[in-house]
Design a protein around this nucleic acid. Structure first.
Length: 332
DNA sequence: TTGTGTTTTACGACCTCC
DNA sequence: GGAGGTCGTAAAACACAA
């Protein structure tokens, strides 16, 4: 699978290892990296271009700088017998390769959300220098904590920087209208620095504190903005007020909507828990989102109809691009 | 600022399905 | 009858031109 969208990676934080130190704007992931002795360490690379096929795990066999163009890896997928360079796997300009140093044996777990890719890199329970002992994909170890990093536009971004030095999400401008595409473009901005002063901030020195700040930021993003004039904290149910969802809540909801226009009961429960929203709020958000989709589609259809001028074709009006509830119920 | 149009939450009314 | 669907709408939040 080829994708032009940036990908979010979750690194196992057990090792506390960071391959890179970043500047917010331009990240050179390998500039400060000193390759460890091959006997005691391994490196891994992902090849996003093959996603979501078999996760690609590679040993780095040779690490002549710069890694980005010339590292020799043992490619285990799709051809275990061949060795390739990263350049082969990730031609310049592709959003495809991620490298991470880990101190112990590691493997990769992954989930795939439509255009949005979310990957987890989990360390094995016991370290080993023998690749034959690497855990199979069915034996991933769930880390206690992990770090989110993002690869986009040939640069890495550590999302923990969103919270440094004070939790401050780069202000995401939600474009109007909120078409799925524009929303993904906005979501890309989640992972990229904006052209403001925040982009110049230096990362904090402590990886641990950064992780804490990141977690705090995520917590803050789960707290919807209360109404400006709350009356006993009530929403419209009694006082005709509404809350404003956080960017993160809307981002995750939008991601889910791009997976399916109708949310299943299990996913609704999961999202409710993950986003600190009630299931009723999730349900109504999807109802509103579908209404918006229909409205947008109608607008587009009206425009195209006008352009076709008296054409009688109405072939694109059937479902407004949204599966019917019956369709959803069949698969829920 | 301010006025105005648009978008986002939230709900009621009504409908279908199980 | 309950759950969840659409449709229409209220009102807060937001965008933006003047």
């Amino acid at each position: 699978m080829n994708t032009n969208y940036p990908s979010i990676i979750s690194l196992d934080h057990e090792s506390n290892s960071r391959l890179y130190e970043t500047s917010y704007n331009s990240y050179s992931p390998y500039t400060e990296f000193t390759p460890p002795p091959p006997v005691t360490s391994k490196l891994e690379a992902f090849d996003y271009n093959y996603w979501p096929g078999t996760p690609t795990t590679h040993n780095i066999l040779a690490i002549p700088p710069p890694l980005t163009t010339n590292a020799t890896i043992d490619q285990m997928h799709p051809s275990p017998s061949t060795s390739q360079t990263l350049e082969t796997l990730a031609p310049h300009g592709s959003s495809s390769v991620y490298l991470s140093q880990i101190n112990s044996t590691a493997t990769i777990a992954a989930t795939h959300h439509h255009h949005h890719i979310h990957q987890h890199l989990y360390a094995a329970a016991s370290s080993s220098n023998d690749s034959s002992n690497w855990l199979p994909s069915t034996e991933y170890q769930t880390p206690d904590t992990y770090r989110h990093c993002t690869y986009a536009n040939n640069s890495f971004y550590d999302q923990s920087q969103w919270a440094t030095p004070t939790p401050s999400l780069p202000s995401i401008k939600f474009e109007s209208p909120y078409s799925p595409q524009s929303y993904f473009e906005s979501s890309n901005n989640l992972d990229q620095p904006l052209s403001d002063s925040k982009a110049e901030e230096e990362p904090s020195s402590s990886s641990y504190s950064k992780c804490q700040e990141q977690q705090n930021w995520f917590k803050s993003q789960l707290t919807p903005t209360p109404p400006k004039n709350p009356v006993n904290g009530k929403t419209r149910t009694r006082d005709k007020y509404r809350i404003v969802y956080t960017d993160r809540q809307r981002y995750e909801l939008e991601n889910e909507f791009n997976v399916s226009k109708y949310i299943s009961i299990p996913r609704k429960a999961a999202l409710s828990s993950a986003l600190a929203l009630s299931e009723r709020q999730i349900k109504i958000w999807f109802q509103n989102r579908r209404a918006k989709e229909r409205k947008l589609h109608k607008k587009r259809h009206d425009i195209s109809s006008r352009q076709l001028n008296n054409s009688t074709d109405a072939d694109s009006t059937s479902d407004a691009g949204v599966e019917s509830p019956t369709y959803y119920q069949t698969y829920s």
